[in-house]
Structures are given as structure tokens and as C-alpha cells.
């Protein structure tokens, strides 16, 4: 035992392991809001992520240009003839136009759905790992955001739900995350099912609609929407479109594969639904 304590490396590795296990127990325990450590890291890192998220689009378009080198060369020559200040002006105007389009869509969304209390939010960071499908938005508990609120895009397609909330940020778990599931119905026949995902389907931006009854009236091309059952999502938010139907012989049920309507990979702005018109009042 004395020899163990004399070995600095062994003591260091044991202490660090112990600290990490204690932190894991504390931070992984269920809490309505992000624990202090996560919230503090989020508050510090959010402004930096905000800064870098602007560069993300530039880098994406930079690498996409390698696909067509010849066209790029020609385009480059013609672009060189343009005056730098004029290009800046165009860029600024484009930015204003995009913002205007976003605001118009938001206004339209609000006017068309007066029953929904919407909060617009910008996407500032995506999941750092290759395992999950989450992103961080620039609105948090100080803006009235809380866990399990639905998140939609400007076309009113369901994107996901609030998974974790900090003071100035919130994490959204998307439809294509393996941990996400939502009660849904086939829009045409009202047959119920559950939309869930795995890594393989997620990479194709598809979901599986499980627990459909054997006699469920579902055909390829049917739209799927939230059922409102479960109390998390308001009813009537579009999830996607059926692209495949399969029979499950042993369980005498069937499942379908749905293509997700929201373009989750290219989101820049989303709307948090702060109220749920279908939720049962508290007793």
C-alpha cells in the first residue's frame, strides 16, 4: 500500500479517475436545467462558438468548390474583375435579404399559427462527436426556454426538442438522434406510430415509424405528423414523408421508413414552441 502511494503516476491516475467518476455521477443525474459546471462552460464557450459559427458557412462553401475546379478557375477570373468594395456591398445586401426572408417567414409562421408561442433562435454549434445529432441555440432559460419544448423550422416542420438548458444557451436533440422518439400519426389515415432513429437511418436523414398496426392504412407518399400524445409535441407538426413500408412477421405489425422533412443539416435559424396547446393543464 505504501509503495502504491509512493508511485506518483499511480496516485495521479487513481485520483483523476475518481474525480471523473464523481463528476460523471453528479453531471449525469437528471436535472431540469444544466448543472452548474455544464452551464458555466456553456456560458463561456457560447460567445466563442457564435464567432466561429459564422466561419463555418464560409469553410463549407470553400471546400464545396473543389468539386468543380475548371468552373472555379473561370469563375475566379471573372470575379477578379469586380471591385472589392462592390463585392462587400453585395454581400451585405445579401445578408440583409436573408435576414428579411427569415423574418418574413417567422412573421408568416406566427400569423398562421397564433396559438403557438414562438421564440426565434440562431444555431451556434453542432454536436462535437460523430455519434449524436444535436445542436446548440443562442437562447436559454433567460428567454423562457425550458426542457422538452418543441423546435420547428420556418416551414413548421418538426426539428426536435429542447434537451438541455443553460442561462444563455440550449441544446436541441433532433429527430435523427438515436435517443429521440416521438408519437406520430399518418396524416391521411390517423393511424398511430412512433418515430425513432438509429445511426444508419440518421445518416440518410430518415426515421423508422414503428408500432404501426398490421391493418394500418399507410402507403408510400403519406405524410407523418406529431400526434400530440405524450404531452411534449403539439399535434400537427409535420415530421416527414413515408418512403418504404415493411411487414414484421413475428410481431404481426408493420413499420415504415420516413424521410425527414426538415433539412436538419443546413439549419441556421429555428423556432422554439414555448407553449403546447395540447398539453393537459396541471392538476
Amino acid at each position: 500500500m505504501r509503495r502504491f502511494f509512493k508511485n506518483k503516476i499511480a496516485v495521479t491516475i487513481s485520483v483523476l479517475t475518481l474525480i471523473l467518476i464523481v463528476l460523471a455521477v453528479i453531471l449525469n443525474s437528471a436535472a431540469p436545467n444544466a448543472p452548474f459546471v455544464q452551464n458555466s462552460v456553456g456560458v463561456i464557450i457560447t460567445p466563442v462558438q457564435h464567432l466561429f459559427s459564422g466561419a463555418q458557412n464560409g469553410i463549407r462553401s470553400f471546400f464545396s468548390r473543389f468539386g468543380d475546379a475548371a468552373a472555379l478557375s473561370e469563375e475566379n477570373q471573372s470575379l477578379n474583375s469586380e471591385i472589392a468594395s462592390l463585392r462587400n456591398e453585395i454581400r451585405e445586401l445579401q445578408s440583409v435579404k436573408d435576414e428579411n426572408t427569415g423574418l418574413r417567414k417567422m412573421l408568416g409562421l406566427k400569423e398562421a399559427n397564433p396559438e403557438l408561442e414562438l421564440e426565434a433562435a440562431n444555431l451556434i454549434a453542432t454536436d462535437p462527436t460523430n455519434w449524436y445529432s444535436t445542436f446548440t441555440i443562442d437562447k436559454g432559460s433567460k428567454d423562457g426556454i425550458s426542457i422538452n419544448q418543441a423546435v420547428i423550422n420556418s416551414d413548421k416542420y418538426l426539428v426536435g426538442r429542447i434537451y438541455e438548458v443553460g442561462t444563455t444557451w440550449a441544446r436541441v436533440i433532433t429527430l435523427s438522434d438515436p435517443e429521440h422518439s416521438a408519437g406520430c400519426v399518418i396524416s391521411r389515415s390517423r393511424d398511430p406510430g412512433v418515430a425513432e432513429c438509429d445511426s444508419e437511418l440518421a445518416s440518410q436523414r430518415k426515421c423508422r415509424i414503428s408500432y404501426l398496426a398490421q391493418d394500418a392504412d399507410v402507403i408510400v407518399g403519406d405524410y407523418v405528423e406529431t400526434s400530440g400524445i405524450g404531452g411534449i409535441y403539439p399535434a400537427g407538426l409535420q415530421l416527414g414523408k413515408i418512403v418504404e413500408i415493411h411487414e414484421e412477421t413475428p410481431s404481426m405489425s408493420k413499420y415504415a421508413i420516413m424521410e425527414i422533412s426538415a433539412d436538419i443539416d443546413h439549419l441556421t435559424q429555428v423556432f422554439v414552441v414555448k407553449n403546447n396547446p395540447n398539453a393537459l393543464p396541471d392538476e
Binding site: T17, L20, I21, L23, A24, L27, N28, V37, Q38, V41, G42, I45, A125, D127, P128, T129, W131, Y132, T134, Y163, E164, R171, E179
Partner: peptide
């Protein structure tokens, strides 16, 4: 640990 906190899942897993 920072990667765990950034991902928001299974905190401590990548740390260890």
C-alpha cells in the same frame, strides 16, 4: 471532460 460537456451525453466517458 470538455468533449463530454460539449456533447451533453454520458459525461465522464470520454474523460476517462
Amino acid at each position: 471532460l470538455f468533449l463530454d460537456i460539449s456533447a451533453g451525453r454520458l459525461i465522464g466517458a470520454y474523460g476517462i
